[in-house]
């Protein structure tokens, strides 16, 4: 195989891929990252995820361990 064997795609497909990638990035950002890291929750998904208690329990456990030390 030779180097720089990049698949050739048309302009339209390229733009499509660009837009899709922005959408995916934006979606994950807004639904998961922003709520988790900055407490910015425009879609309320943070609350949804938050209600899944497994993260809270893990944090509580970690805190408890640190307290005992």
């Amino acid at each position: 195989m030779t180097t720089n064997e990049e698949p050739v795609m048309g302009n339209k497909q390229l733009i499509k891929y660009l837009i899709i990638s922005i959408l995916i990035g934006g979606f994950v950002l807004v639904t998961a990252i922003l709520p988790a890291e900055y407490n910015i929750d425009p879609l309320g998904t943070g609350k949804l995820l938050d209600s899944a208690d497994f993260i809270k329990m893990r944090l509580k456990k970690r805190l408890a361990c640190k307290m005992h030390l």
């Binding site: 698949p7 891929y17 660009l18 899709i20 990638s21 995916i24 994950v28 922003l34």
Partner: peptide
């Protein structure tokens, strides 16, 4: 899947850009 993978790479990049810029502005 080479194209798809590189598209996902871009998605990850955009995600991280958003993540970092939000940090910058907030």
């Amino acid at each position: 899947f080479a194209n798809l993978t590189n598209m996902l790479l871009m998605a990850a990049g955009f995600l991280l850009i958003g993540f970092q810029l939000t940090g910058y502005f907030t």
